[in-house]
Design a protein around this nucleic acid. Structure first.
Lengths: 285, 285
DNA sequence: GTTCCGCATGAATCGATAG
DNA sequence: ACTATCGATTCATGCGGAA
């Protein structure tokens, strides 16, 4: 089955109107934060942010399936010595639009921006707000289970090297039978705190968030061939993650430069996947 | 110099009125969280939480010194499938009272409450809201510095084993000159994410926050002989932390049972400190 | 082929300086 | 007085070149 990756260049609130309702399974996005990204996106002032965002979130509510989820990555900055309150106000306004504020995940950034000030420490976390249209949303918790604390130590060490190699080399599940049994027994469900690094100084694609972030939510809230939407695509991290996990995706960005870049990268990745599948088929012939 | 630990039994909004203004350097507290079940003992319903808390925060604003800080540990519950908004509303109302919302620290709980739900992961974080009366508050950042990321690996490994042994064996500072130089150079300021475990097996009372939590803020926002206030003392963790760090403290709790318990424990601890100081004086005679 | 060291690079924030 | 711009400060990460 084919995976579609569609990229549209333009303003999110315009483009979204051409997308039919109830067709998206997951929205993952990181819009420009207030007063930030002035050079690329013009920078939306904090006191205008809500009126700028609400028309977009209204369209997002329309295009999302009743079983779908909206994950919004955002963080308020310091203005005049205080944390700005626009994110909290946005949550309350979105609830008035009909969104359910289901959960707030924390992205704990391992490598946050450095600096020192007399009255403040470095900011090492961002919000990942989960909104839903209904309480009956899809969630595939097993897809993001994590190894338990001593999993590697207590279990894998007992395997002989040949066992490990043999089991890992099996095709299909990616793990041999023995290990997969242990997997289910010694895997735990994660929490609502994600501990990831930002991808810094990666010349090829300078992404706002690391690929693992959208990947995690895509695995958690969608299954294969579902549709993922990112209305502020940027360099396209969400779309690459979706493509890699065999989900259809729609990306929107106002900057033509980003759209071109994303289109070319997607083409490369698709080709790369195709080649790998060829090799794979050849090797297993 | 003597350390005072005062414990008052009664309703916080009443007791606080008898405390004179501008005399507290730090307020650290974890009030009872809102509870949707109105009939449970002491539980404040979520929709009444703000009107219950605002008279207290008003008094807290009065008793706090202009250079002081208020750290509020709180987390909104899930009500009817959604995160409740009363914490956000509380922040906005407190700002109207005159509080500055300076920062939001995250307490990432290493061992959070177990459980499994079909539509939600375990909640592993709580808010630590920092409020101030003015922008010129005291902050002693050096008191809470932490070792840098790869401190042990990248620096200490370059020392010969004999160097390490010789330097470690020196009395006094605990480190030899060389290492202590590196210490200061290889310590970094922390971030606004705290990664602590909850205290699980505390004999006398239900698991609240770990001693390190109030200790961290006491070290950060006060100096010796300053005054720390906890208007919802509970079993007295904040007061013990203050006493241990040689800060005066005031505790308030509505349950006589807790007040008695805290009073006895404080007495024990003070005695213990006294004995240690005697031993110390004797040993160094 | 490793391992190691140096280096640029960030969704930052404050305080001073300039219009 | 109030707003824009700039320099200083700071640290985890991954890349590239060197040993």
């Amino acid at each position: 089955m084919e995976i579609n990756t569609d990229i549209f260049c333009g303003d999110a609130s315009d483009i979204l109107q051409d997308i039919e309702e109830n067709c998206v399974d997951l929205i993952v996005t990181s819009p420009p934060y207030a007063d930030q990204r002035k050079d690329t996106y013009g920078g939306i002032p904090a006191d205008k942010y809500i009126e700028w965002f609400l028309p977009i979130s209204k369209e997002l509510l329309r295009v999302l399936k009743p079983t779908g989820t909206f994950v919004l990555n955002i963080k308020e900055r310091v203005i005049n010595g205080e944390r700005s309150t626009y994110v909290m106000e946005l949550i309350m306004e979105m609830r008035k639009q009909g969104w359910l504020w289901t959960e707030e995940f924390i992205w704990h950034k391992k490598n946050c921006y450095p600096g020192k000030w007399p009255n403040r420490f470095r900011d090492a976390w961002e919000r990942l707000l989960q909104f839903n249209k209904t309480k009956q949303f899809n969630m595939y918790q097993e897809a993001v289970m994590v190894p338990m604390g001593n999993w590697a130590k207590t279990r894998l060490k007992n395997l002989s090297e040949t066992d490990k190699i043999r089991d890992n080399s099996r095709v299909g599940s990616g793990f041999g039978k023995n290990i997969s049994n242990w997997l289910t027994r010694d895997m735990a469900y994660p929490t609502n705190v994600l501990h990831l690094s930002t991808e810094c100084s990666n010349r090829s694609h300078s992404a706002t968030f690391p690929m693992e972030l959208p990947s995690w939510f895509i695995k958690l809230f969608t299954k294969e061939f579902d549709t993922v939407l990112d209305p502020f695509m940027g360099s396209g991290t969400t779309l690459f993650a979706a493509e890699k996990l065999r989900r259809n995706s729609i990306g929107i960005d106002i900057l033509d430069e980003y759209c071109q870049m994303a289109k070319e990268e997607i083409k490369e990745k698709e080709l790369c996947h195709f080649e790998k599948e060829e090799e794979y088929a050849f090797a297993n012939k």
